[in-house]
């Protein structure tokens, strides 16, 4: 069947809630409204008001209460609507969620998931367009997942809900309506995708291109174009940003000897900055050239659509950056 990213997320939530009574979802406008992107539509009707709860506009209490609920036996999968709003609860996520078990001891498990819609989409402006993976990479203890296609989104969200580690789950909102053909028997098979395992989305021998979230389909499109020019790009989707599957990425770089990172977030101190530093530190002798960082421009995201598109890496910009490496 053709499945959208949004449907895959919704189905993962429903399947996990059917499977485990301890799972519940709450957040702003997730109940009657079914979340502002329609992701949780129909869930209130199926699971009732105790397991599908609206909250006030109260990000700090959403995260704080998720900690308390998780450590006492529930498996809350909470929503912060826009990933930008993680910043409202930055302390709760950075200090509390990610450190809670480490600073209190092994009894204090936090099986919780924080979902949010991330990145730019059609003039959402500077406070509703951010990606936040790089901000939370600085919080050891937190698992960060950003799926790039419906199949991965479903399998990874199911794993996230079953994980006893706290997970920040980023959903690039431009992907919500993208479709993927998935055979029914697979889609309905209760499959999961392991956390911390990258996926080689396209093999290639010339350049390793690590792409995150929304940039994965663009990287694949760029790779297709570059293939016509005789440049074979290996596109790797880490899927889990933290902890990172270094093994898969490093194996690719040992093969291609050139690496680039493409992300929707800002360039400065972005995920690409971290990966580039990691590559030169750990794979210096394998690299035949500098690691390229392809990222959003370092500006607050403008409301103007042409500027928004200009800021975020396009297929053309990715192609140009890769060509410049060779």
């Amino acid at each position: 069947m053709k499945v959208t990213y949004a449907k895959a997320i919704g189905d993962a939530l429903k399947e996990e809630m059917r499977r485990d009574q301890k799972v519940l979802i709450y957040g702003e406008d997730v109940a009657q409204f079914g979340n502002i992107f329609g992701v949780t539509r129909g869930m209130l009707e199926e699971f009732g008001p105790k397991r599908v709860r609206n909250t006030p506009i109260t990000e700090t209490a959403i995260i704080g209460s998720a900690i308390g609920a998780a450590e006492t036996g529930l498996r809350p999968c909470v929503e912060l609507m826009y990933s930008d709003f993680t910043m409202v609860a930055f302390t709760e996520i950075f200090h509390c969620v990610s450190k809670w078990r480490y600073m209190h001891g092994p009894e204090y498990r936090l099986p919780l998931v924080i979902r949010s819609a991330s990145g730019a989409s059609n003039g959402a402006g500077s406070e509703h367009s951010n990606t936040v993976e790089s901000l939370f990479l600085h919080a050891p203890g937190l698992t960060i997942i950003t799926p790039s296609c419906p199949y991965d989104a479903k399998g990874l969200l199911k794993s996230a809900i079953r994980s006893d580690n706290p997970v920040l789950f980023c959903e690039p909102k431009q992907l919500y309506q993208t479709k993927q053909e998935i055979p029914d028997e697979i889609y309905e098979s209760d499959y999961t995708i392991p956390i911390g395992v990258a996926d080689v989305k396209r093999p290639g021998r010339d350049v390793t291109l690590v792409a995150i979230g929304l940039m994965v389909p663009r990287a694949l499109e760029a790779a297709e174009k570059l293939a016509a020019e005789g440049i074979e790009v290996e596109v790797i989707d880490p899927r889990t940003i933290a902890p990172l599957d270094k093994e898969t990425i490093f194996a690719s770089i040992r093969k291609t000897h050139l690496a680039a990172v493409v992300e929707e977030g800002n360039k400065t101190a972005g995920v690409g900055a971290e990966l580039a530093a990691m590559f030169q530190e750990e794979l210096y002798d394998e690299l035949d050239g500098p690691v390229a960082r392809i990222a959003a421009l370092d500006v607050p995201m403008p409301y103007n659509i042409r500027m928004e598109k200009y800021s975020i890496p396009s297929v053309e910009r990715i192609c140009a950056s890769i060509r410049a490496m060779l």
């Binding site: 209490a61 704080g64 209460s65 900690i67 308390g68 609920a69 998780a70 809350p76």
Partner: peptide, 16 residues
């Protein structure tokens, strides 16, 4: 930042 942690524990109590 932890005030709501108790609220979450109360949510578990309520659910159970």
């Amino acid at each position: 930042c932890d005030a709501a942690v108790g609220v979450g524990a109360a949510l578990t109590i309520d659910m159970e």
